[in-house]
Design a protein around this nucleic acid. Sequence first.
DNA 1: CCAAAGATGCGCT
DNA 2: GCGCATCTTTGGG
Length: 235
Amino acid sequence: MLGAVFFDRDPRTVAKDLVGKVLRRRIRSSWLSVQIVEVEAYSIREKGSHASLGRTPSREALFMPAGTIYMYYSRGADSLNVSCRGAGNAVLFKAGRPFTDALSPPESLDRMHELNPGSRGERPLERLCSGQTLICRALELRVVDWNRRTFDPQTFFVEDVGYRPSRLIQARRLGIPKGRDEHLLYRFIDFDRVRSATSNPMTKRGFKEGVDFRILSLRRPSANARRDHFWAKDS
DNA sequence: CCAAAGATGCGCT
DNA sequence: GCGCATCTTTGGG
């Protein structure tokens, strides 16, 4: 299980490292699993974040220690975040892909389809968790149960299963109104699994490489050199 | 009251 | 495959 130490870092670093990790959720006796495909980072220092709107009871989790679950309800559905280093900083889980292994056998997929049925027939497996609220539906995660709580190895946690993406797409975040730091490239998508992401920045009309998105290769040259290069243009 | 880190269907290019 | 209207439910002004 990834603990507080994992989340006690810059939310952009946490977001990048979360791509490929697996959400584990126990419903009664069966474990449901979703591998993370897309994540967004939010900082209190920019206007896209909920934290920048002020500290209120419903946003309190954002200001609690790194690793605290922040859930909110908007437009008829729940969304999942985790607080990171720096009061008000967090990552938002945007999309994932159903995952099976010894802990979550193929039958677990049936349970997820039940929890998140399509309005017209069963969803394609590849699109079952391709949205922030779809993840929450498929894993039965709700604000009343999980907001302000921490991960728990008995019922809900994040696991490193050893998967390492070869490339990430770094892009603008979704749903950020104009003037709210919408240009920041704080969204990260597994290049090889973009079909399970909310949308594909590379094929979006009007999106230009180097402005609206960029490709990060995660081959193994100096991690520090990479990081400096990637973030050199941030304010 | 109404905007909100959204999702869906339907119509189009 | 994309854009836009429409549906959604709650917290906060």
